[in-house]
Design a protein around this nucleic acid. Sequence first.
DNA 1: CTGTTAGCGCTTTCAC
DNA 2: GTGAAAGCGCTAACAG
Lengths: 346, 346
Amino acid sequence: MAASTLAEVAKLAGVSLATASRVLNGSARKPGEGIAERVRAAAESLGYVANAQAQALAKSSTGLIGLIVHDIADPYFSAIAQGVQAAARQEHRMVLLATTDGTPAAEKEAVVAFAARRAESIVIAGSRSTRAEDAGANAELAAELDRYCRNGGRVGVLGQPVIGAAETDRYYTVAVPNEELARELALELAADHEGPFVIVGGPEGLATSDERIKGFQRGLSDAGRPTAELLRAPFNRNGGFDAGVGISRKLATAEQPRPCIFAGNDVMAIGVAAAFREHGLKIPRDAALAGFDDIEWLRDFRPALSTVSLPLEELGRLVTLGAISDDVGPATVEGSVALRRSTSSS
Amino acid sequence: MAASTLAEVAKLAGVSLATASRVLNGSARKPGEGIAERVRAAAESLGYVANAQAQALAKSSTGLIGLIVHDIADPYFSAIAQGVQAAARQEHRMVLLATTDGTPAAEKEAVVAFAARRAESIVIAGSRSTRAEDAGANAELAAELDRYCRNGGRVGVLGQPVIGAAETDRYYTVAVPNEELARELALELAADHEGPFVIVGGPEGLATSDERIKGFQRGLSDAGRPTAELLRAPFNRNGGFDAGVGISRKLATAEQPRPCIFAGNDVMAIGVAAAFREHGLKIPRDAALAGFDDIEWLRDFRPALSTVSLPLEELGRLVTLGAISDDVGPATVEGSVALRRSTSSS
DNA sequence: CTGTTAGCGCTTTCAC
DNA sequence: GTGAAAGCGCTAACAG
């Protein structure tokens, strides 16, 4: 990567390094227009492109922002990434991407890599794990993040605060009101569903999933309904599918009342629906089905999926802005229940 | 971003900068284990994280790879990004992300930014535009890319080669056989569809779209069928929807034979299907419908969409590997026609 | 307004 | 094996 240097440009233009720097890369002091013109011409003719590494080193500011997601191919995360990218662009930052499959250990590695690159902010999206076996890795992640903050970094967290983080004033958290929204969903669902409720949740300890489950149960309880049966499965499409297979079998075996299934997120719900189809069952005829997230690419799915709308891209924007500047007030996220055909009465 | 420096570590360990460097960051010469241990301890106690910027400057190699996509929220691109990310990780590189909405001007800007960051390779995904009005911007993009190559960069191109690129030996292109695959699709479709064919393509000049259209028409012709009517719309879900509305209206107006619609990509096809639904028309009853790409998140859509499967993630992996190392042979992409329910006979 | 001169943090010959 | 010193390309005081 050997492009021409500022020194070469300066020499060609017959000026000093400092002057060349001043005209090419912004500075308070503006050199005379005649000189400036010569420098620009020289730069142009040499195809000069400033070395951002060197600039970063010299002024210790990189304009980099690190983004950590579980899986960039997951529409949930790619929508968020879009928002992050938009905000970064608006603020003249570049984004460094890392995917981790949600494992705290990989997240920690990503933080180290970003810290090495001297990213000015790190945005970390995706649910934290509260499982006992992840406690160690979580602590390491928090420690790494704290160290990063102590060295001047800022971090934006989407969802739940990082477990065990200390330097809290350098964290900007945009919390998603999972629990409250899930409660509202349960309330609305309970209003016109007679039968029993079943929850298809993610693995225990996945914070987002746990919050949604908890909120949904609470809503049910508030509506005077019995607690829902809880099924656990991977928090993705196939997890939903597997759970759906189980439910379908049960429905086929015995004469059971029509259940209302709440899946922890939209893609799980889609999995449940797919399993139902394979077993000749129909939604909403044989079961009501609701998801969470309102993923854009799933909106054309039929029957239209009842879900909770989340402004994913906006979330990404907000957390990024908050992670860049420290005078961004706390953001409140508005989600809303969207009842559609998958939970209609029959 | 002021972390502790190598110098501090060296001082604490009571060794020279050089030695500290050798033990902390790999080097051919291995200092004695006793010394090494002291250095490591010092680094650990100071929470030392090497400054990648400084390293990059010193050894002029950044380990950065730039990725340019139209829209990271589009499942087509996010699948590719996943592959790019995987390859980058495997090769110990970090990826810098830029989104451009497909405008050559923004792509050029991204290239400049990556060049400034001294990214070692740039992967550029997404269709090139062959429209006359983009010619200028395309030329600038090609010029920028060429300059980047001349300065030692390598570029990986997914889809069509960059128009007007000169330094071709530093480009690694993974071409998608759009035309041939579209032709195969047409051939298979023609085998059991009686009625007329309609193509819902992207705007004229969008290379990917144009290739698919051309291949499809050729396949039709090879099958002894008349040329399909061609509708143009934005190359996304809403473009498909709008085109679908038009087709639905026409179908409703006059008594027409059941058409077979080929949409330029899956999301357009989904748009067409949505429009049909809104007009009370059913697929495949009132029209056969096929897409292209076989987007993973759309596989649970019903009726199952006939399409052409493309190994998107693998494609991302391949271009990236090719853009990193120059001894990666040309890759051949295998796509395959997947006929499903959306084009079944009735 | 322009030029000189220290660094920024690290790698890497080259001596010892 | 270890250390001293010269950069890598650029910015930012500080002089002139």
